[in-house]
Amino acid sequence: MTAVADARVRLTDRLEASGALAPDWRQAFLDVGRHLFLPDVFWADTSEGYERCDRAESPERWLQLAYSDTAIVTQWDDGGDGGQREPTSSVSMPTMVASMLRDLDVHEGHKVWEGGTGPGWNAALLARRQGAHSVVTVELDPAIAARAAANFRALDAVPTAVVGDAEHGYLPGAPYDRGILTCAVREVPPAVIGQIRPQGVLVLPFAPLFGGGAVARLTVSGATATGPFTGSSAFMRMRQQRYQAPSVDDYLPGDWPGDASQEYTTLSPFKVVDDWLASFVVGLAVPDVYYRRSDGDDMTSLWLFDTGVTSWATVDFVDGASRYEVRQSGPRRMWSEVEEIHRWWEKEGRPGFGRFGLTVDGGEHRAWLDEPANLLPPVRGRG
């Protein structure tokens, strides 16, 4: 057995043993090598940060990382040359790829739409499993799409690859039995829901503006889609849904603290923003709130804002303190809303990702706990 074949088998065995890889996906993972979709130079997302790896310099390490259970970045900053600030294309972590394909629950004869081709590994797995004629994949970035097309040419089963906007789905190929997004959204595109057959399934990473993220498995019925979250996720956000925050001066035109009230809280802001699940729950409850942090030598300030540019708040964290100063301004009490939903979550026993779900109906998003009728409670300032 060659080194590549051995690495492929070992990764597939690990994924299957962990439960992430359903047995009926095993052959596709053995047949479609992950290394075929990686450039000669990439950046692996390791516990110590992004590790740059050059195949020419370190071929053994390159192959090891290619078949490791880690996400691999293949593009930074939308392909710009201004440095490496934000990863904007990748080959996803194999455990995440396998588990989302398991959630998709494809069967023979199903036609599948994918939004976000990236380098193409996920689409290639689908094409190997379903047949090339049954898979349509859409990529917004022409350069990424061109690289994916080159990667596909090495395969027997080549999906229909389209350069276009995944927010619009791909109407010429609709309707689809299954849909999958490989980029995170904070609003599920109505056009995509509308192109899935009744009782079809749409799997996607959902990432509220505030923070956190989880995979949603939605069952479609007309313009409505509803279903549970199946587990934590961390994906790059769909390019069209990146939020461009206004200037702080738009919220606070004068000197700080302006007309803000002064209060105190015993809830550390980092128990909210540094906890992936907690920040996700807050984001579900207050989808129009975001935060920024300002780090100083002796104090860290958490700034909260609403997208309506009506209200703001700050919470000052000092290490070792038992309470933290809060300033709030505007008709909404930003920190009070966050604190309220966090308190509700703790009272409920800190339920995990799998107990939450999402219903999307005509563009309206409603988060729920355990069942669709049990909506998250409203918080002050939102009704």
Score class of each variant (00 low, 15 high):
Q241L: 11
S261E: 15
D177C: 02
L209D: 04
F210Y: 15
F229V: 04
G227D: 13
V163F: 01
W256V: 08
A223W: 07
P198D: 15
A148L: 09
V201I: 15
A166V: 00
G231N: 09
P172Q: 07
T182M: 10
G231Q: 10
Q240V: 11
A148N: 07
S268D: 11
A166R: 02
Y176M: 11
R186L: 12
G164P: 00
P228K: 15
P198V: 07
T230F: 01
A154Q: 14
P246Q: 13
A260V: 02
T224E: 13
C183A: 15
W256L: 12
A148T: 07
P269I: 00
G222S: 07
A145K: 02
A184F: 10
A174C: 04
D259Q: 07
L204F: 14
I180S: 05
H168R: 14
D250K: 15
L252A: 14
D249P: 01
G194M: 06
A161T: 15
S247I: 08
G227Q: 09
A225G: 11
A174H: 09
R217N: 04
P257C: 06
I144M: 12
T219M: 04
V162F: 02
G213C: 08
T182Y: 04
S268N: 13
A216Q: 06
M236W: 05
R237C: 08
S221F: 03
L202G: 08
Q262M: 04
C183E: 00
A174I: 00
Y176K: 07
G213M: 12
A260D: 10
Q244C: 11
R197G: 05
V188H: 00
A260Q: 08
R178P: 03
Y251Q: 08
T160D: 10
Y264C: 01
G254W: 02
P205C: 05
D250P: 05
V220D: 01
Y264M: 05
Q199E: 13
L155W: 01
A223H: 12
I180K: 01
D250N: 13
F229P: 08
N151S: 06
G173F: 05
V158P: 00
A214D: 07
A184Q: 08
T265A: 02
L209R: 12
T182H: 03
Y176G: 07
A216H: 06
T160G: 07
P175L: 05
S261M: 09
D165S: 02
P246A: 08
S268M: 01
F206E: 02
Y243C: 11
V163R: 05
L252T: 09
D255H: 14
Q195W: 09
G211T: 10
S221W: 04
V158G: 06
Y243T: 10
A184E: 09
G254H: 11
Y243R: 12
A145I: 00
A145L: 03
G212W: 12
T226K: 06
Q262S: 12
F152L: 11
L218P: 00
Q199L: 13
S233K: 04
